[in-house]
Structure formats: structure tokens, C-alpha cells
């Protein structure tokens, strides 16, 4: 058996304190992001790029201020490419996404996984294309731990006639700690990682994670840039406010569970 001396106890406490501080520091930095945020065009082995949303921390504990409140579900949504906000080298683009990507529209397949949450389903458009997914219920994500929520993305084909050297898709993600209505969304109930595009999820600019979304960048890797393009351009695609309001939610069998 250990013989616990006063010195040992003191050192142990110091170590625990240091670990605690370290963990808190890491949590504060770890916004929800994709495990692999940069991929190549339609070239991955086995068709899809296997990826995951990494939930870095829970919601804010109102007593301690630590971000260690358990997460009970998460929602992940990709831009639909229909009314999405497109910029080219930072300049708004008024044309369609097809100017840069020829096959966008059914971007994600959830990899079934009940290691953290018991339930999951897709978020689809009116044609049945899978724009995102939600997962929730069950034991959930315990505060202080991280979650890797696996999914695959379909191959993306960049329009060979375009000057796009990369296309970055900006996601909307909500890590839910407490089921509320939209008015009840704050740092203690939900961590929202979404672009600030005027949706009901924008929140205050002072909110933790404001306008700090996860992204998936697809680098051009199949066809060379046309000579006239020079160095090429970087394209960014964000979901519209309308889409986030419509799709960043949990609907189950016709009933909306979150936000209520």
C-alpha cells in the first residue's frame, strides 16, 4: 500500500492542479472542428473522405465558468449550395456554386456510431439529399472529455474551367447541453459554431465561439488550373441564414426536438 506522506500529498495536489489548469486551457482553445479540415478533390480511397466532427468541450458551467457541462447532442450542417453565400478571393460571387463545383448537393454520410449518443439521423433537403445530421441522447459527452463524431464526405469535383484552386465549405454546428428554445440559446445551454450570416443562431459578438465555424477545404487536385487563371482563387461557401434557420435543428419523425 502507498504510505501517503504530507510531502506526497502536497505534490499530488500540485500535479492535479497543474493538470486541471492544463485541461482547462486546452478546452478553452478547442472549438468544435473537423478532424481533417483539408482534403483533396474526388480522389480519396474508397470514395469518401472519412472524417469527424471533434467536439472540444462542453457548455459553460455558470458556477465555475469552466466549459465542462455535458453535451447531450450535436447537429452538423453543410451549405446546400443553392442559396449559399459564395465569395471568391473575399469578393462576393453572384453566380452559382456550379461555377466552381460540379457535383455538390449530397455531401455527407453519417458513420453509424453509438459510442457517445444513442440516436442519429440525417438532415435532408426536399429531394432527399443529405446536407447534415444530428446525433443525441444516450449517455452523452461527459464534461472534460472530447467527442469524435464520425462521418464521411462525398467526393467533390471542382469545375475544371474555373479558376478555383480551393473551395472551402463552412459548416454550421451546434453542440447542445440543454434543450431550449432559440431565446434560451447561450453559452450555458448550447455551443454554436456557425458563420454569423444573420441566422437566429448568430448570437452576440461577445459570445464564446461567435462566427467561429468549422470548415472543410477541398484543394484542386484533379485538373490543372487554366493558364489564364494565374495563381488561381480561393472560394468560400457559407450556408445562408435561411438554410441555418431551416436545417440547424433536430427534427425526428416530424417533431422538432431542438430548438423547441
Amino acid at each position: 500500500m502507498f504510505k501517503t506522506t504530507g510531502k506526497f500529498k502536497y505534490r499530488a495536489l500540485m500535479l492535479m492542479a497543474a493538470l486541471g489548469l492544463s485541461a482547462a486551457g486546452q478546452s478553452a482553445l478547442a472549438h468544435t472542428r473537423l478532424k481533417t479540415p483539408v482534403i483533396n478533390e474526388n480522389a480519396a480511397a474508397f470514395g469518401s473522405d472519412y472524417n469527424a466532427a471533434v467536439i472540444g468541450h462542453g457548455c459553460t458551467n455558470p458556477v465555475t465558468g469552466a466549459v465542462d457541462v455535458d453535451v447531450i447532442g450535436t447537429v452538423v450542417v453543410f451549405p446546400d449550395g443553392k442559396d449559399s453565400i459564395i465569395t471568391v478571393g473575399g469578393t462576393p460571387h453572384t453566380g452559382s456554386l456550379a461555377d466552381f463545383v460540379t457535383n455538390w448537393g449530397n455531401p455527407v454520410t453519417k458513420i453509424q456510431d453509438r459510442s457517445i449518443f444513442d440516436y442519429e439521423d440525417y438532415i435532408k433537403d426536399s429531394l432527399g439529399n443529405k446536407l447534415g445530421f444530428w446525433t443525441g441522447g444516450g449517455k452523452g459527452l461527459k464534461g472534460g472529455f472530447r467527442a469524435v463524431v464520425p462521418f464521411a464526405t462525398a467526393g467533390v469535383v471542382i469545375n475544371e474551367a474555373s479558376c478555383a484552386k480551393s473551395v472551402t465549405f463552412v459548416l454550421g454546428i451546434a453542440d447542445i447541453c440543454q434543450i431550449t428554445d432559440v431565446a434560451g440559446i447561450n453559452a450555458e445551454t448550447v455551443n454554436v459554431w456557425a458563420p454569423a450570416v444573420g441566422s437566429v443562431y448568430d448570437g452576440s459578438p461577445t459570445r464564446h465561439g461567435y462566427d467561429s465555424p468549422a470548415t472543410l477545404t477541398v484543394n484542386r487536385s484533379i485538373t490543372p488550373l487554366p493558364e489564364s487563371c494565374g495563381a488561381g482563387v480561393d472560394v468560400v461557401v457559407k450556408p445562408s441564414a435561411n438554410q441555418l434557420d431551416r436545417d440547424l435543428r433536430i427534427n425526428f419523425d416530424g417533431k422538432q426536438i431542438w430548438p423547441q
Partner: peptide
């Protein structure tokens, strides 16, 4: 909150 979610879904 866990129970609420569970109930709502189940």
C-alpha cells in the same frame, strides 16, 4: 437534460 432528450426521442 439527458432524460428530456431521451424521452423526446424515444
Amino acid at each position: 437534460p439527458h432524460r428530456l432528450f431521451q424521452k423526446a426521442v424515444a
